[in-house]
């Protein structure tokens, strides 16, 4: 296991027994993954591909059938690992009778924030989640977007090094979604590692440094967003500068047609296209 990784997953397999006969269903199949520190990492895949199961195992909520996992150098599911991890589950639900501030205080105390620092930590996380104004209202009155943001505040109140967000923008309108994107960027600026599970591929493409795509419990692709999206067999010219010789030739050729070369770069296909290419047909066809 690598201590330089925020999360290190080695040979993770998870089987569920379903039905009366206990038929084996493999949810995660020999998954190995290294998530570097200080980056925003996108974990993608269609429904039922094993993303959420992987996250639950990483968080120690369910046991693995086999494999080893460490968080920031500590075995997962230990108190040391959890102390350094924040988690926002998919479609979070919180006690409706608490106010937003009470919920974040409650989570701060459960996460081990000392009593004398709770108020300061709570206000800082509420501010980052843009929930200061609504913090005194009962959670039962919150919209979906506000629920996600208060969920984010409870996840980061103890200033964790690693933040795991499972579908943080599910059911949130584009404005709320953009706000959550800004919060992720703010956390990255503070040096946090963020693992993001999302179906909003456009947002993942915008905020993530690296992505991994899972299908049928297996890892089918992992790498830097720029690298995995680049189509290196083609070039797009967008700026004026090129290598001197090629530029000269290109300019001459283009000038003859009244055009000016402004840039040359690797063209990109969208993350959505890549995702569909990798997983379409395997599940829905």
């Amino acid at each position: 296991m690598s201590t330089s990784s925020a999360i290190s997953v080695q040979g993770l397999t998870k089987d569920f027994r379903v039905g009366l006969r206990g038929v084996k269903l493999r949810a995660v199949d020999n998954l190995s993954l290294e998530i570097p520190r200080g980056q925003v990492f996108g974990l993608l895949g269609p429904n039922g591909c094993g993303k959420s199961t992987t996250l639950k195992i990483v968080l120690g909520l369910i046991p693995a059938t086999s494999g080893a996992i460490s968080i920031l150098g500590f075995p997962s599911a230990t108190s040391e690992a959890r102390q350094r991890t924040g988690f926002l589950p998919e479609a979070p639900y919180f006690h409706k009778f608490l106010t937003g501030r009470e919920l974040v205080q409650y989570c701060a105390r459960l996460s081990g924030v000392p009593a004398e620092k709770v108020n300061e930590a709570v206000e800082a996380s509420l501010e980052l989640a843009a929930m200061t104004e609504a913090a005194s209202r009962p959670i039962g009155t919150y919209s979906k977007g506000m629920l996600q943001r208060i969920g984010l505040a409870q996840a980061i109140v103890h200033d964790p090094e690693l933040v795991i967000l499972d579908e943080p923008t599910a059911g949130v309108d584009p404005v709320g979604s953009a706000a959550i994107g800004r919060m992720i960027n703010a956390m990255r600026a503070k040096g946090k590692t963020i693992v993001l599970c999302s179906h909003l591929l456009g947002q993942v493409e915008q905020v993530c440094d690296r992505v991994a795509i899972m299908d049928r419990g297996r890892l089918v692709l992992e790498g830097r967003v720029d690298e995995v999206l680049a189509q290196r067999d083609r070039h797009v010219i967008t700026v004026a500068d090129l290598t001197p010789q090629a530029r000269q030739a290109a300019e001459a050729a283009l000038a003859a047609h009244g055009a000016t070369v402004t840039s040359i770069t690797h063209p990109r296909r969208s993350l959505e296209d890549l995702f569909r290419e990798l997983v379409t047909g395997s599940r829905d066809a």
Binding site: K56, L59, G60, L61, S79, R82, Q83, T85, F87, L88, P89, A91, P92, Y93, F94, H95, C107, L110, S111, G112, G151, Q154, I164
Partner: peptide, 14 residues
């Protein structure tokens, strides 16, 4: 059922 247990048990809470 409301999955609040997920949020709580992901914290350093046994």
């Amino acid at each position: 059922e409301n999955r609040t247990a997920l949020t709580l048990l992901a914290k350093p809470l046994s």
